[in-house]
Design a protein around this nucleic acid. Sequence first.
DNA 1: TAGCTTGTTCGATGTTCGACGAACAACGAA
DNA 2: TTCGTTGTTCGTCGAACATCGAACAAGCTA
Lengths: 115, 115
Amino acid sequence: MRNAHHPATEELSLPDVMAALSDPLRIGLVRLLADGTERGWGELRAPVAKSTLSHHLRVLRDAGVTRTRQEGTRCFVTLRRQDLDERFPGLVGALLGAADAEGVGGDIHLAPAPH
Amino acid sequence: MRNAHHPATEELSLPDVMAALSDPLRIGLVRLLADGTERGWGELRAPVAKSTLSHHLRVLRDAGVTRTRQEGTRCFVTLRRQDLDERFPGLVGALLGAADAEGVGGDIHLAPAPH
DNA sequence: TAGCTTGTTCGATGTTCGACGAACAACGAA
DNA sequence: TTCGTTGTTCGTCGAACATCGAACAAGCTA
């Protein structure tokens, strides 16, 4: 987090992004972020240990799919939609369309009461 | 080959297809097949051992990205563009556009003399 | 039948991945 | 300062992956 590496737009790697988006859990996370809203780490609910969730968020961040912002002791995550669209036009849109139709990552949701 | 399993269109899995398309070598193969032309196995040139190439073609086939046809002792490969577009509209197009722009898999090419 | 070509399969090896719990670091609050 | 919250990192595990060379199977061809 502190040393969070966010690749620049020019550094995005297509294979890395594809790999990041090939896991159902991570696709679910991307679907949650698809509306552009910034979400708090704690809002994210997935049926895995928090260390595992942290791992997946790191994979997405390292691939340049998401951006993590730290504020005090908590983190906020956003989808780098614009950067991705710039480098890989239509890719995220196609993925989201297919994922929605298939229900991929449907077991990832937001906390009932965001606090 | 003989026991080649080709998933039906309805059986295509988005995460599996994404995973199949997350390797530069496999992306390169898909780029070669992108024009819809059926290619002979022997036409494909990649800087890996033939057992490795066989493995990658199998991954693509198992994910439903390509179709392999056997004719006598040799194989012919095609991209299942239509099936993929039906299930995951725009995905392959976006991938190909990005891969072309980035030059991903550019070390995969066709044999100089196709015969 | 014997040999050649073509591509798959079989180990073997080293790497990466996904998962977990435990320990840790950073920060805000008491 | 002490405590609780929040999320990362570490160590570990088994499974999956990429790669190779060698062995193999299937089909032509001589």
